[in-house]
Design a protein around this nucleic acid. Structure first.
Lengths: 150, 150
DNA sequence: TATTGTTATACTCTATAACTATA
DNA sequence: TATAGTTATAGAGTATAACAATA
């Protein structure tokens, strides 16, 4: 069935189209694919998130990263060991609480994060190129309200 | 450092906050958690997507579902076999092309999809409860423009 | 008793390759 | 030769349980 203008007319809107979660997932998958294409050989999204948190909060602990980024300590341990092996971070034992390792970016790590960040933002310019700057800001605001405990 | 009003003042915006992909991922993860909580024992998001596509387009093929939803045929095969086993779908051999199976929801499947759909939407009311109806519509529009080839 | 970091392990999801049957 | 459906398998990502060290 077509309208007078020749466009297809749906008697009912597609079911999936109603589900915000579906749109979220599809957009996120597309973004992840772009990230992988741009930086996949060097860093992965979750690992980059962890490094950004260390950059934003020098001295943050693995347990705190786990809580903030919803990652299991058990999965964080080998990741941080790898960062250490690549010379991206330093792990300093806390003087007062011997259980705790304070995490810091090394100079190399800081430079790498800055580089990756720049390239990730450039990649997002491509992924979200269909949206204007204002629309992206609107989107950012709406999304952050969803997942942050606001 | 605090402002005169006592709120924490960031000299620089957190790095992660700039990345739209990060917000997308966090929001999507939250939505998936809600979906799992509401329907996890009965149906999973990807499986629900597949059933919705069959509902929207009776006679659709597995290969076409794979293209539309970015799923591998190889992973679709056991899923459709399971749907068949649960009596949710029927697979009818195409009369003209013997390679093709035309997929249709059974009566049971149609009822199940309708039920799940209602509950998924109710769950989204909770997940996105912080947004107004207009804001959700705005979000839906922006997201769909990102991942659809517009 | 609770928490941190760690190891081992299981489970889910997705990707790749190869096969058959049809066209 | 190309495509549909299928099978087997490998890899990545995530979750669970248990442990030693420390508080």
């Amino acid at each position: 069935m077509t309208s007078r203008r020749g466009r297809i007319e749906l008697t009912t809107r597609p079911e999936l189209d109603d589900l915000l979660g579906y749109h979220l997932r599809r957009a996120s998958i597309l973004d992840l694919a772009g990230f992988a294409e741009a930086l996949g050989d060097e860093i992965k999204p979750v690992a980059f998130t962890v490094l950004c948190l260390i950059d934003e909060t020098p001295g943050i602990t693995a347990a705190e990263i786990g809580r903030q980024a919803r990652l299991q300590r058990a999965n964080l341990a080998p990741m941080l060991a790898e960062f250490d092996g690549r010379g991206l971070i330093e792990r300093r034992l806390d003087a007062e609480d011997q259980r705790i390792q304070r995490l810091h970016l090394s100079q190399l790590g800081a430079r790498a994060v800055a580089d990756w960040r720049e390239r990730a933002l450039a990649q997002e310019d491509r992924t979200f190129g269909t949206l204007t700057s204002d629309e992206r800001e609107t989107l950012r605001g709406l999304l952050s309200r969803i997942w942050k405990d606001v």
